[in-house]
Design a protein around this nucleic acid. Structure first.
Lengths: 258, 258
DNA sequence: CGAAAATTTGACGACTCTCAAGTCGAGTGG
DNA sequence: CCACTCGACTTGAGAGTCGTCAAATTTTCG
């Protein structure tokens, strides 16, 4: 797993927030604005096991940036938890709880994570004194909304095997945007139970669907790693078109200069 | 169909934007801020027939507030159009295209509408000079995202009859928030074809599901009007909980003081 | 009234769920 | 080193939900 020189420099300069909007509008930020962001993180925390880091309906006075690991947005349904979306390193996972006060969903870690906290008072200062940074933060929450919309469409359109393929394709692409994953797949703490919550199916059916994907040569899922041997076949099967992720024009998830 | 005194005053004072975030955070706006918004609308347009008002991927230099009528977010799938969500009067339907430049989906009218346009240059001024208004605009886009998340969960959880019930429940509640609809349902230009795009089913299955809802006494859908005789039964069947719509504490969709 | 659009119905097959049982793999204690 | 255990995963059978194809019926509107 390699990273571009660009990413390495950015991560050395901004170890906590260097992945924020990488290969999206991050390039529009000035050094000062990046520094304002980086120094806004006033606490870093590490969790090893699965854990709820934000609970639906409660009020917080900080927001959280995901530095390393995976976090899932969830909503408790009638009898089971439902996965809404996955967040990857660099994502400001609950930026919107600053503007919304309370949130309508939970944030649960999946596997070990490293988190950075930013106080809302600090965000308010940013809103008041750095209009461009404010716009960028707004942008970040809007990309999340675009991801939700795409997923609504896919849920309406795709069968479970194709939904799984889409989850893999999107997750892979987003990891590549921030310099993670490799050209043949990515490491992941996901298991079949979590996948079933994400695609709205039973674990049993997910198992069958994964077998289908394996036999088709589209995706080989095993605990700890997801292999994706044929990008084109994957994209076509999942009807995946990354436009909605708002990556920089010309970004290529298959090359080293991600 | 009646409205509260509150709504009437607000609509007289701000005929174009008086419904914006009504019964949500609108109360936090000062008269000056409301005036800034109202005077930002520099053009009003009326459409009678179904029509695409914003096309995926294109760049616009204005955003649109829905003054009257219904608008649907859509994404073109492999062979058919998919409905993502419905917008009601008072919604700033494509505010995010200001921050995102191009949008990932289309906006299509459903039935006759009246639209107001706000130039992006004007929004930029607001961002720079009215931080509180900026936060409110951000808030508005975040509520849309919350609606998307809830719908993702419902798509993962509910059968088609229950999805339809949820669409009716949410649409009704949101109309009540802005002083529209009545205590037994609401007028609506929706037809079964559009409903099928919204819930991710075939028109044929929607027809059967509507029959089911009718026989259960939960919803009586006919072109032009949706009757909802038993709110409690509807909410329970659809597992509808309006928290995610961020209505003002104490708002009651069943009373006159909406 | 007549044509077009919207809605309804029936039959059959595909996708997914539930219930139940069985397999596999990592870690533990003997 | 092996038996055991627990969680994760897999397999099978039958039922429910929903899609497809085809046709009939009702509504809308010129």
């Amino acid at each position: 797993m390699t990273m571009t020189q660009w990413d390495q420099n950015e991560l050395e300069a901004y170890p906590l927030t260097g992945r924020f909007l990488a290969n999206r509008v991050r390039a529009e930020l000035t050094a000062e604005e990046k520094r304002v962001l980086e120094t806004s993180v006033d606490e870093v925390e590490v969790f090893d096991r699965t854990r709820r880091i934000l609970t639906q309906g409660e009020v917080y006075n900080h927001s959280t940036i995901l530095i390393d690991g995976l976090v899932m947005r969830t909503i408790e349904g009638a009898d089971r938890r439902h996965g809404i979306s996955i967040q990857v390193p660099g994502d400001f996972v609950d930026l919107h709880c600053f503007a919304l006060k309370r949130l309508d969903h939970n944030l649960d870690t999946v596997g070990p994570v490293r988190l950075g906290y930013v106080r809302h008072s600090r965000l308010r200062e940013i809103m008041d004194h750095y209009p461009k940074l404010a716009r960028i933060l707004w942008f970040a929450t809007l990309v999340d909304a675009a991801i939700h919309r795409e997923w609504v469409m896919k849920l309406e359109q795709l069968t479970v095997p194709k939904r799984l393929a889409h989850v893999f394709a999107e997750n892979w692409y987003r990891l590549r945007l921030v310099g993670l994953g490799d050209e043949n797949g990515f490491a992941s703490p996901l298991n079949q139970a979590v996948l079933s919550e994400l695609v709205g199916a039973t674990p049993i059916h997910v198992s069958r669907a994964l077998k289908d994907l394996r036999e088709r040569g589209i995706a080989d899922f095993s605990r700890g790693r997801i292999d994706l041997p044929d990008r084109e076949k994957l994209y076509e099967f999942a009807a995946f078109d990354p436009d909605y992720l708002y990556g920089t024009k010309g970004f290529d998830p298959g090359s080293e200069n991600g």
